[in-house]
Simulated scan of single mutants.
Amino acid sequence: MREVAERRQQLELEHEQALAILKFKQDEIKRLQRAQLFAKREHEGVVQML
């Protein structure tokens, strides 16, 4: 029974870590998407000036 409790605790810790990594990656994707959109708009503005 003790082994089961230890395994459950380990799995819960791994789950929390996985969620933290997922949130970090999602935030990173959002930042990259905003940067890409900004670059696209900036490029379109330069093209229009030409």
Rank of each mutant, 00 (worst) to 15 (best):
Arg31Glu: 03
Gln17Trp: 01
His15Thr: 13
Val47Lys: 07
Arg41Tyr: 10
Ala20Ile: 08
Ile29Phe: 10
Leu19Lys: 07
Leu13His: 15
Leu50His: 01
Lys30Trp: 02
Ala18Leu: 01
Glu6His: 01
Lys30His: 14
Arg2Gly: 15
Glu44Phe: 05
Glu6Val: 07
Arg41Met: 14
Leu19Tyr: 04
Gln9Arg: 14
Phe38Ala: 14
Lys40Pro: 03
Gly45Tyr: 13
Gln26Asn: 03
Glu12Thr: 02
Arg7Thr: 07
Val4Ile: 11
Asp27Thr: 07
Ala35Gln: 14
His15Phe: 14
Arg31His: 01
Arg7Asn: 09
Gln10Val: 03
Lys40Glu: 10
Ala39Asn: 02
Glu14Phe: 03
Leu32Cys: 02
Leu22Ala: 12
Val47Ala: 04
Ala5Asp: 11
Gln36Leu: 12
Gln36His: 13
Arg2Glu: 12
Ile21His: 14
Ile21Ser: 15
Met49Lys: 13
Leu50Cys: 06
Lys23Cys: 08
Ala20Ser: 02
Arg8Gln: 12
Arg31Met: 06
Glu14Met: 06
Glu6Phe: 06
Gly45Phe: 12
Gln36Asn: 11
Arg7His: 08
His43Arg: 15
Glu42Ser: 13
Val4Asn: 14
Gln10Ala: 13
Ala35Glu: 05
Glu44Asp: 05
Glu6Cys: 08
Ile29Asp: 00
Glu12Pro: 09
Lys30Pro: 05
Glu12His: 05
Ala5Trp: 14
Gln36Ala: 13
Lys30Arg: 09
Arg41Leu: 03
Arg31Gly: 01
Lys40Arg: 13
Ile29Tyr: 08
Gln10Ile: 04
Glu16Arg: 05
Leu11Glu: 04
Glu3Pro: 04
Glu16Trp: 11
Ala35Asn: 04
Glu12Phe: 05
Glu3Ile: 11
Glu42Leu: 10
Lys23Ser: 10
Gln10Phe: 09
Met49Gly: 10
Arg41Ala: 04
Glu42Thr: 08
Glu3Arg: 10
Lys25Arg: 09
His43Gly: 02
Glu16Met: 06
Glu44Pro: 00
Gln33Cys: 06
Gln26Arg: 07
Glu3Val: 10
Ala20Val: 02
His43Tyr: 12
Leu50Lys: 10
Gln36Phe: 03
Ala5Ser: 12
Glu3Gly: 02
Glu16Gln: 09
Ala20Met: 08
Gln26Val: 01
Gln17Glu: 02
Gln9Gly: 04
Lys30Leu: 12
Glu6Lys: 09
Lys40Asp: 08
Arg7Gly: 07
Gln10Glu: 08
Met49His: 09
Val47Cys: 07
Asp27Asn: 00
Arg7Trp: 04
Gly45Thr: 14
Glu6Asn: 06
Leu13Phe: 15
